[in-house]
Design a protein around this nucleic acid. Structure first.
Lengths: 153, 153
DNA sequence: CGCGTTTGGTTGACATATCAACCACTTCGG
DNA sequence: CCGAAGTGGTTGATATGTCAACCAAACGCG
C-alpha cells in the first residue's frame, strides 16, 4: 500500500477547504467588481498605495507588499494607467519608478472600501466562530515560511 | 462611525486567511506542475474523468462537477486535446459531447497522483490540528449555499 | 579602469479566466 | 404548424497570470 495515497476523508477535507475559499472569496470579489468595476488586483494596488505610502509607492515596494513579481505588477499597472487609476513617474534619485494614485483612483477606492468591508463581513467574518479565527491565525503562523526543518549537516 | 468599516483585527484575519490559502495551494500546484506539466485545471479534468466516469464523461457533467461554466471548459478541453490528454466524441443519442481520457492522459495522471497526494499531505494535511479540521468542515457547511434567508412572500 | 553581477523595470509569448454572442437542435404551448 | 424558450456547445474579445528574455544603470572588486 502506498503511504502517500490520501484517504476519502483526507481528500474530503482538501476539497472542502478549497471549495470554501473559492466560494467565499468569489462572493467578495464579485460584490466589489459588480459595484465598482475593480478587480482584486486593482483594489490591492490602490489600497496599498494609500495605506502604505499615503498615495504613492515605489514600484518594487508595491510588488513586494503584494507578493507579486515585478513582471506581473508592470503589466497590471500598464492596464491601470490606461484606465486612469494610477500614474508612473521615474525617480531622479535612483533608477526606480514611483507609482501614484490619481484623484480618479482615489475616488473609486473610496467608493469600493465600504462595499468590500460589507462583503468581507457578510460572506466571511459573520460566518466565523471564535474557534475558526483561532484556527486561521495558527494555521497561517505554521505555514508562514517553508517549514523545512533542515537536518544537521 | 461607519458600521461597515473593518477593524485592524478583522482585516488581519481576512489577510491571514487569504494568504494561507495562496501559500499552501500555490505550493501544492507548484509541486505538481513542476513534476508533471499539468495545471490545476488539467488535473481536475483528468481526475474526474477517471473517478466519476471511468475514463469518460459528457462535457456538461464534467463542467458541473468542476463548477466551471461550459465556455471555460470548452476552451480548456481544446487546449488539452491539442496536447493529447483527452479527446472529444459527439454522442449520437443526443446532441452532447463525450470527453474521453487518452492513454497518454491516463499515464500523466498516474504519474501525478502520488505527487499531488504527497504535496497535499506535506503542505496542508500535516499542518492541521483536529480543531482545524473541524473548523474547515463546519465553515464549508455554513457557506455551502447562499444563506439568503428569503422572507415569506 | 573594466568586466561581471545585481537592481529595477519592460516586453513578448503564451496559458488561463470571463463574458457575451452565436449556433444547431429540441421542447413546449398554443 | 409556428414561434418562444431551453439545451449543449463553440467562438472571439478581452482581462489576467506566468515565464523567460531583454535592457540600462549601479555596484563590486581585481
Amino acid at each position: 500500500m502506498n503511504k502517500n495515497e490520501l484517504s476519502e476523508e483526507e481528500m474530503r477535507i482538501w476539497h472542502l477547504w478549497k471549495g470554501s475559499f473559492h466560494r467565499i472569496f468569489g462572493r467578495v470579489i464579485k460584490d466589489m467588481s459588480e459595484h465598482t468595476g475593480l478587480s482584486e488586483g486593482d483594489y490591492g494596488v490602490l489600497d496599498r498605495l494609500v495605506l502604505l505610502g499615503d498615495g504613492s509607492l515605489r514600484q518594487q515596494e508595491l510588488a513586494d507588499s503584494m507578493n507579486w513579481d515585478k513582471s506581473r505588477l508592470s503589466h497590471h499597472l500598464t492596464r491601470m494607467e490606461k484606465r486612469g487609476l494610477v500614474t508612473r513617474k521615474p525617480l531622479d534619485t535612483d533608477r526606480g519608478v514611483l507609482v501614484l494614485i490619481t484623484p480618479a483612483g482615489r475616488s473609486v477606492l473610496d467608493d469600493a472600501r465600504p462595499i468590500v468591508s460589507k462583503a468581507i463581513r457578510e460572506h466571511f467574518l459573520d460566518q466565523l466562530t471564535e474557534q475558526d479565527i483561532e484556527s486561521i491565525a495558527k494555521l497561517a503562523e505554521r505555514t508562514r515560511t517553508k517549514s523545512s526543518a533542515a537536518p544537521l549537516p
